[in-house]
């Protein structure tokens, strides 16, 4: 029994040590080569799941080509839309496909098929046309993690068209990915349902990106600030492709 316990502890310590080495290696980008090789395959695998299956090889090839054409058409259309969006010319856009959306009670993130190899870095804003979706919080060679605006951990400095300034904080309701709250708005400023909310540009995000629309204003005389429920302009789960803004 004693020998078994020692063996178990030894094994546990051995695997833990390997995990720790990996953890440190990945943190300091020492294992990036191996990681990017494996990740490339994983991303390809995740993309295959979207392709339809044909009966024969030829039929499969036709379907695959049709899918590719559709993808290119869709990408072209979205790029045109993106370029027509009223955004500064100094912005460069990195297109990326959405791999998955993960919603937990304390965070809402989107995994995208673009990482440091495509030029994505942490802190970069993610948009669709001129609507803000979130910002990149982590990158690996081929996968990026975007914290969505609806996440309780997301805080974005915003303003309304008439100048009311505040902070948009996500909701901790798992099923409400397209709602958030605007908080810290002074009582002296006017906030009305229907007001459009845009980024104020105070927290490293570009100014004037659309965020959402005021739905319901909550005013309490005792509180120094007023807040409001807002609906976000895009539902992340409906998106298949997004753009990461890279300022040149």
């Amino acid at each position: 029994m004693q020998r078994q316990r020692i063996q178990l502890t030894q094994l546990f310590l051995l695997w833990s040590a390997i995990s720790l080495v990996l953890l440190l290696g990945d943190t300091y980008h020492i294992v990036d080569g191996v990681r990017s090789f494996v990740e490339e395959k994983i991303v390809a695998l995740r993309m295959i799941a979207e392709k339809p299956e044909g009966e024969g090889l030829l039929a499969a090839k036709v379907l695959s080509l049709e899918q590719e054409r559709n993808n290119l058409q869709e990408e072209n259309q979205q790029l045109r839309k993106q370029l027509q969006a009223p955004l500064p010319a100094s912005f460069a856009f990195i297109p990326a496909r959405v791999i998955a959306i993960e919603e937990k009670s304390n965070d809402k993130v989107m995994r995208i098929a673009a990482g440091s190899k495509q030029g994505v870095a942490t802190g970069m804003p993610v948009v669709r046309e001129n609507i803000l979706i979130g910002s990149v919080i982590a990158v690996t060679p081929y996968i990026g993690t975007v914290r969505l605006l609806g996440s309780p951990q997301s805080k974005v400095a915003v303003s309304t068209k008439i100048g009311a300034q505040g902070l948009v904080v996500g909701s901790d309701n798992v099923n409400a990915s397209s709602t958030a709250m605007i908080d810290r708005v002074l009582h002296t400023t006017l906030l009305t349902p229907g007001d459009l909310i845009v980024t104020s540009g105070e927290d490293q995000l570009p100014a004037d990106l659309l965020v959402g629309k005021v739905e319901h204003v909550i005013k309490e005389a005792r509180e120094p600030f007023q807040k409001a429920e807002i609906s976000l302009l895009v539902k992340p789960e409906e998106l298949s492709r997004i753009f990461i803004i890279k300022e040149e």
Partner: peptide, 25 residues
């Protein structure tokens, strides 16, 4: 089981794009 736990953690980190080794521990 210890080898399986290590590999499962590694796969989770690779799949989610997290730092390798965190889930394994």
């Amino acid at each position: 089981s210890l080898a399986g736990a290590f590999l499962a953690g590694l796969m989770v980190d690779l799949w989610r794009g997290n730092v390798l080794g965190g889930s394994s521990i």
